[in-house]
Computed example of a mutant assay.
Amino acid sequence: MIQRLGVIGAGLMGSGIAEVASRQGLDVIVIEATEATAQAGSNRITRSLDRGVRSGKLSEEARADALSHIEITTAFEKLSDRELVVEAVIEDEAAKLDVFRRLDTIIEDPTAVLASNTSSIPIMKLAMATQRPEQVVGIHFFNPVPVMPLVEVVTSLMTNSKVEQQAHEFAGGQLGKHVIKSKDRAGFIVNALLIPYLLSAVRMFESGFATAEDIDTGMVDGCAHPMGPLALADLIGLDTTMAVAQSLYEEFKEPLYAPPPLLSRMCEAGLLGRKTGRGFYQYS
């Protein structure tokens, strides 16, 4: 059983992972780059827990207990005693490789599990940035972490079977998530299927074939999807969608994975979806 968890990154994913772990009584240390982003992460977790209280899903006592189990800091060295660390930084290979190089030097226990929440980058690439590739595994949560039940556990060619078991027990047993197992290919299971669908919707909109509203309504009312593809891309973040598409295209070199020009232009313009207030839709 994991008791001491580290999370690197307090954005949407990292803060969500920290929240669900703290609610199960784990001792959680979250690392951020600056005091400002650390405070933003703390505020994000507090707001999420407050929503749980307002909705009646969480008591005031449970809220306070969860917060007491989380420390958010810029001091990377505080991760030295962690039994498991989940990297949840931006979906950028260079940034993630840097994190794993640093983890390899700071984590004292050679049997500690080093995990990535990457959406698409092959785990083998990250594992080889360390001197302990057998201890590296993918533990891919979905956004928003406190709500979405699924976790993909991704093993590389080098991942130790005991590490896979620990990852499964952590996500499924301790956090109560539904775990599916994936081989180590870019995009894993969900994004390898989802991203071509999203890109197809972007191309349809880009060509002028249909409006964003009609594309999304077609998939919601015609296929019983809970959300249309363009609204979903806005929720995921167009930069993240772009990054995953690029990883998939690099791996497979298939046209269906190539980012459409419109998606590239929107990312360059900073129109990234809900988090910036504008993507395929406007948000207040």
Rank of each mutant, 00 (worst) to 15 (best):
T34R: 08
Y283H: 04
D104S: 13
V244L: 08
F141A: 03
F142K: 05
S182F: 08
F209L: 15
H140M: 09
L157Q: 13
E87T: 03
P255S: 06
E93W: 07
N117Y: 04
A201N: 00
A243V: 07
F76N: 06
E169R: 00
G11M: 01
L198H: 07
V190G: 06
A36K: 14
F188E: 06
L248D: 10
S264I: 15
K253P: 01
Y283T: 08
A186S: 15
I29N: 04
E169F: 13
L272N: 01
G222N: 13
N160H: 15
G208L: 14
A201M: 01
T118G: 00
I121C: 00
M204W: 04
R82Y: 07
A243H: 10
E60Q: 10
G173N: 13
A201S: 12
M148F: 01
I29H: 07
V30G: 08
V147A: 12
E71I: 14
G25F: 07
A231Y: 02
G41T: 10
P261V: 13
V151N: 04
C223N: 11
V190M: 10
T159Q: 08
T217C: 05
K253Y: 15
A171M: 03
R47N: 07
A212I: 03
S80Q: 11
I90Y: 15
N160D: 15
G279F: 07
A33P: 00
P255C: 05
G273I: 06
D184V: 05
G273R: 12
C223E: 10
